[in-house]
């Protein structure tokens, strides 16, 4: 009977270890050494405009300098190309102590995001979007605060995109 008890104990331990939940991915995806240093600037550009203000004032073709946090949805980066969305820093995201696994989706302030979001495309000298993931290209991650310099692209629906050639990663 002792053997049976031992066997039961071992089985119980295996079950308990097997059922232990994996640690929650509460951290942002890690950024690595940037591969596109030609797109990065060392000092912060002057007169950067928050995204919300730019959406109100910028016209199609204007040269703009926008500041914002990378985010706005669960997956703010476009896989495989250097494009992502940024949100005005005035819009609050879930603080870390709340334990939200994806604070960059602004789940609690989605209504504010609509008027404070812009799409950033990193373009090369020929104006084509760089075909490399922005996380590798710029060494950024979700919620990184970035300043982007480029040309605004507006449409009739009020959406704002920026063809950026220079990026300053603030934090």
């Amino acid at each position: 009977m002792k053997t049976i008890a031992n066997l039961s104990l071992v089985t119980a331990i295996v079950v308990l270890i097997g059922c232990k939940p994996s640690e929650s991915k509460n951290e942002n995806t890690k950024s690595s050494e940037p591969t596109g240093k030609q797109y990065l600037v060392a000092s912060e550009p002057d007169d950067s405009t928050p995204v919300g203000e730019a959406r109100k004032g910028a016209k199609d073709g204007d040269a703009v300098t926008l500041v914002g946090h990378i985010g706005g949805s669960t997956k703010p980066f476009v896989e495989g190309i250097a494009a992502f969305t940024i949100v005005d820093p005035k819009v609050a995201y879930c603080p870390p102590e709340e334990g939200c696994p994806t604070p960059w989706d602004y789940c609690c302030t989605q209504n504010e995001v609509k008027e404070n979001i812009a799409t950033v495309k990193i373009v090369n000298e020929r104006g084509k979007t760089v075909s490399e993931d922005a996380r590798q290209l710029l060494g950024v991650k979700e919620l990184s605060l970035v300043v982007v310099q480029g040309t605004a692209k507006r449409d009739e629906q009020g959406n704002l995109s920026v063809m950026a050639q220079k990026v300053y990663v603030k934090q």
């Binding site: 896989e79 979001i117 799409t119 629906q157 959406n159």
Partner: peptide
């Protein structure tokens, strides 16, 4: 082709609220 261009379209057209 890849899904990137369609993803980008959905990101740019925030008014459509697509993914």
């Amino acid at each position: 082709s890849s899904t990137a261009e369609i993803e980008l379209f959905c990101k740019e057209r925030t008014d459509l609220e697509l993914r």
